[in-house]
Amino acid sequence: MASRLDLVIPEIAGKQGDNVALKIRSELNRLENLLNPYLSDSIIARVNRFAYHHEVETGSELIHLLHRCIRYVQFTSGLFDISMLRTKQRLKEHAHPDDYASVRQQTSAITSVILNEEKNTIRFLSPDVQIDTGAFGKGYALDRIRNILSEEGIANAFVSFGESSLLGMGLHPSGNAWKIRLNVPGNDAECEISLSDAFVSVSGNVPKFAESPPEQKVHIIDPRTGKAVNTTGVVAVVAKSGLEAEALSTALFLADPDDYQSIMKAFDCSLVYRLMPDKAGKITKYSFKNSDQ
């Protein structure tokens, strides 16, 4: 997943700490082989390569995971879309805005992904669909890490996966939660979040993004247009599941704030922070509580 994982477990004996770290490392290696589309022998790479030509058997874990993701696609009216990897690659290859339309024409919707939960197979109905695990992989991995920590009897821990996906389990040894402040360059608005048995996912574009060459400005794709989104700003979602937090943060970055509540209702999410530039370009913070929680 091409990201650094930082794991902080307070007050753990050295040997147990080594053991836990080894288990987590082993699990991450397993997930790499399942979900990294850039590893030629990974399961998702085989799916992306062959699923248009024939059904690809994947085992039940990936089918269940993709099934959940497709539900999130539905909950977000398609703003969270896991089928955009090929679109993303094409946008990088044809970075000029004039190419967007033709790229979009080649792109098919998530409805072209067919999961067979009895046979644990995947089939694509369009040659232009490829699964982009970058949209949810780290969140899922954090869920798995949380399970390992719980199984090991660890109640208090803090985990950062590439800084964009975070988990605070239990409490800071000297406090009543894990308190973080979002580290968003160019952001004057303070955004502190208290985490206790909760995940945070952060989606968005830092100011440096705007200065980058076009081929590098392909980070978040708006499935409605097939275009890369150039807006500078950040959305942070606090949720009880890493996977849900990650799906939701991407969708809410694209969504109109008026639609936030209706989207949030479908998720086990408590809080959303939106840090976006106002008309004067100053980043302003808005927070949204899930009215269903």
Partner: peptide, 8 residues
């Protein structure tokens, strides 16, 4: 408060 967390 720990300054951590940002877009990937």
């Amino acid at each position: 408060v720990v300054p951590v967390g940002g877009p990937s």
